[in-house]
Design a protein around this nucleic acid. Structure first.
Length: 561
RNA sequence: CGGGGCGUGGCUCAGCCCGGUUAGAGCGCCUGGUUCGGGACCAGGAGGUCGGAGGUUCAAAUCCUCUCGCCCCGACCA
């Protein structure tokens, strides 16, 4: 492609709205332009990269026996009502105004619909069906360029099996395919155990890339490799000590003391002597959640302990339920279910709210004073805590979710009646898995991991072109002739070449554009080197540059690309 | 949805607080010329309903009200 003819609108200045490197660079290199919040147009250069990623995904999915579909994004709402997901997605799902259609945010329902009545026998399975297609989600807050958009490309795959054991096999195939895909894309990633959330199912793992722009937080152990989303991660932490003698319950006046920190200062005690109370409304009934000190309630863990409708209580509800405002609530005299974090197991001589404003109770013995108290792991892992597997310290950081694999089970097949007959002629629901990859995220994450102050650093695998040929002074006949000949030769050899043949651009301008676009190898044709029949080659990644005779260039390129 | 910020030629921004020439700069773009291996220079030129609507005023980019859009933090999130 000749740059003089190409639509590759590079920007010299940093766009005001972009913060993270991948977003800045995708705009500056002319890969994308924003149309509206969270909605991006891919320009030719960006779309070329999309096609490369898609092709890698396609090859690896085909390699595990996947069959590619192309489903409609426009779906009848009815089918989503059968699985209750219109309600589950809520405002995140786009609804069409003038017909009862929705824009699909994922495709479990539609794939299951097609399996129903067609995949009827155990002999018809296993099946792996996938597509690479646009998804629509009405994100309340799109951010970070293409990383969180309202419309995005997703590879979504679905497996259909006759048993949980066979699902394990399909799941393992996808796990391997995903490892291959991300490795080929040269991404540093790791795999974490995750919560399956609204997708349902009983097991899921996420493929994560460490990044400050990430929206997930993960705990990771460098030493043994343990990695989990903090939604589900666990660690070894000391519980509150149980003292030999339990003190008597004692009411203490604590005017204007609201937080645990204030309480510790006021009474000159340690936070591990305090039980913090949070009230949730679970299926319309209040539940008191006790945490040690300043530990935060992990609402994902809480939701798995309290399945169903769950939300924090409103301030006015708290007053009505407990007789006190947040900050003075406690377990003694609380009417309703009480659960506590494991760190509080059988602790005594604790301080907590007295369910009376400006009052706390001391000398609380959970064993003595809170009968039938249930303990669960409810806290969020913090950095520097101890790994449950190997005993070393956990690291906690932000990460971007690139892919997610779920063992769904029968949730969709049961809801939609997708059943099969087994060897014994018995009717069973199909056992399903679902597997997603965010295509744009692969690109954005690659750029996050491969850039410098000059621009992107493409590896040959994802680079939109392999070679960046530059004619430095395209008014000089010898440069025109030599660079055009090299361009034609390289194309004839099958290379993908971007040829900066612009007549009016200065050398420095071309160099900077080349470094910005970041194609792996630059070939620089200038009149000085041409006098010795040479050109200059620059490796973008290392910055290494050398001159070489034109005759030897082609052999050298075989080594480099 | 809550908090904060911002909307002025294609891009980055100044002007607004304190209303008053023909609304500015740099980059980019067009024409001509010089330059030509790390984002050149000279001369000339095109391009703006100041996000939109309403209001105050003799007079609004500037003040007021409403509204739309965008960014950041939070909430939410597959």
């Amino acid at each position: 492609m000749k740059l003089s003819k190409a639509f590759i609108p590079t920007l010299k200045e940093v766009p005001a709205d972009a913060i993270i490197p991948s977003h800045v660079l995708m705009l500056r290199t002319g890969m994308v332009r924003m149309l509206s919040a969270g909605i991006y147009s891919f320009l030719p250069l960006g779309y070329t990269v999309v096609k490369k990623v898609v092709e890698i995904i396609r090859e690896e999915m085909d390699a595990i026996g996947g069959q590619e579909f192309h489903l409609p994004a426009l779906n009848p709402k009815e089918i989503w009502e059968e699985t209750n997901r219109v309600e589950a997605f809520g405002d995140t799902m786009f609804h069409i105004k003038n017909r009862d259609y929705v824009l699909a945010p994922t495709h479990e329902e539609i794939m299951t619909y097609h399996a129903k009545g067609v995949v009827k026998s155990y002999k018809d399975m296993p099946q792996i069906w996938y597509q690479i297609q646009t998804k629509f989600r009405n994100e309340p807050r799109p951010k970070s360029g293409v990383i969180r958009g309202r419309q995005f490309l997703m590879k979504d795959a679905y497996s259909f099996d006759t048993s949980w054991e066979n699902l394990d096999k399909s799941y393992a195939l996808h796990d391997q395919a995903y490892r291959n895909i991300f490795k080929r894309c040269d991404l540093k990633y790791f795999i974490v155990g995750a919560s399956s959330g609204a997708m349902g199912g009983n097991r899921s793992e996420e493929f994560m890339v460490k990044s400050e722009a990430g929206e997930d937080t993960v705990a990771h152990c460098e030493k043994c490799g343990y990695a989990a989303n903090v939604e589900v991660a666990t660690s070894v932490v000391e519980g509150a000590p149980r003292n030999e003698n339990s003190l008597e319950l004692k009411e203490i006046s604590t005017p204007n003391v609201k937080s645990i920190d204030e309480l510790c200062r006021f009474l000159n005690i340690n936070e591990t002597q305090c039980a913090k109370s949070r009230v949730y409304i679970h299926n319309d009934k209040p539940v008191l959640v006790l945490m040690l000190g300043n530990d935060e309630v992990n609402e994902t863990k809480l939701a798995s302990v309290l399945p169903g409708a769950l939300r924090p209580g409103h301030p006015d509800e708290l007053k009505e339920i407990t007789g006190a405002d947040a900050g003075s609530i406690g377990p003694i005299g609380f009417k309703g279910r009480i659960i506590a974090d494991l760190r509080l197991k059988d602790a005594n001589n604790l301080y907590s709210g007295a369910n009376k404003n400006d009052c706390h109770l001391g000398g609380i013995d959970l064993k003595r004073d809170v009968p039938n108290l249930e303990y669960f792991d409810l806290r969020t892992v913090q950095a520097e805590e101890t790994c449950t597997r190997c005993g070393s310290k956990l690291d906690v950081f932000k990460a971007i979710e690139l892919g997610h694999i779920f063992k769904l089970g029968t949730r969709y097949s049961e809801a939609l009646g997708a059943t099969f007959l087994d060897e014994n002629g018995k009717v069973n629901p199909i056992i399903m898995g679902s597997y997603g990859i965010g295509v744009e995220r692969v690109i954005a994450c690659y750029i996050e991991q491969h850039n410098d102050e000059k621009g992107i650093i493409w590896d040959k695998t994802l680079a939109p072109y392999q070679l960046h040929l530059m004619g430095l002074n395209m008014k000089k006949p010898e440069v025109i002739e030599a660079s055009n000949k090299i361009y034609d030769d390289l194309k004839a050899m099958g290379y993908q070449v971007l040829f900066d043949d612009r007549v009016d651009a200065q050398a420095g301008f071309k160099f900077n554009d080349a470094d910005l676009l970041g194609l792996p190898v630059q070939i620089i044709v200038g009149d000085k080197n041409l006098k010795e029949n040479k050109v200059e080659v620059k490796i973008r990644k290392s910055g290494e540059r050398f001159t070489i005779e034109i005759d030897r260039l082609y052999d050298k390129l075989k080594e480099l690309i």
